[in-house]
Amino acid sequence: MIDVAATYNVSYILVQDTSLEGLLYAGGTFWAVQLIWFRANRRPSRFVTEDDLFHRTLNIGNLVILGTIVLHIRPVKIMSNPSEEITMFVFCLCLVLEDCLELIKCMDEYFFGVGQRVPIRASACFEMLHVVFTLLFHIPALVIAAVDFFPRSSNYTRRLAGEDVIPHHEEAPNYEDENAHSSNYGNGNEKSTTNAPIMLVLAGSWMLLISSAIGIIFLFPKNGKHKEK
């Protein structure tokens, strides 16, 4: 059901903005959610997990993080403005947390997996490699979003509290303040900086897909030998 809301929000991004930027944000958010979905189905298709407190907590954590991600899939105007809106920061933070949860699950498989230990370890390591690969993209995205957002967080807090925050440049417009405006809302060269987090997220999803495809096609044993007992 959370994925239903995610697809609706992604579709709304496209409805709001059909430009290339809209496609970038729709694709970035959609494939990030799809990656989480694929990961969530990878484990049950290989292992039977115990119905204990630890695994239940992990699953609940997964759902909470996914729900938060979906909540922060917003139109381009909001997501592309990480200096004023918290949306992109929380989105990237949740992706990193999701990766961390996935790492914990892989460690669980690696150390406590019951059955054929060697294949289980190999499978866990392969998945861990995937997660570390995505973290290489998600952590920089989070850092960029955090660097953009936190110096201006006071305005955001005041606006959340219902205050009518008037930006400094609107009080006394001059040439210098015009520059301040462009750095806040992003245009020209600044726009590429504000789109950097979502570009990294999109690159993370697709680079993972392509690299794992290359790995499986060229490096895995041929003729189904990787499945042999």
Binding site: V118, R121, A122, S123, C125, F126, F220, K227, K229
Partner: peptide, 14 residues
């Protein structure tokens, strides 16, 4: 193991 690609067998998918 994490730094090594799994040349040996892994767990097949259902």
């Amino acid at each position: 193991n994490s730094c090594r690609f799994p040349h040996h067998r892994t767990i097949p998918m259902n």
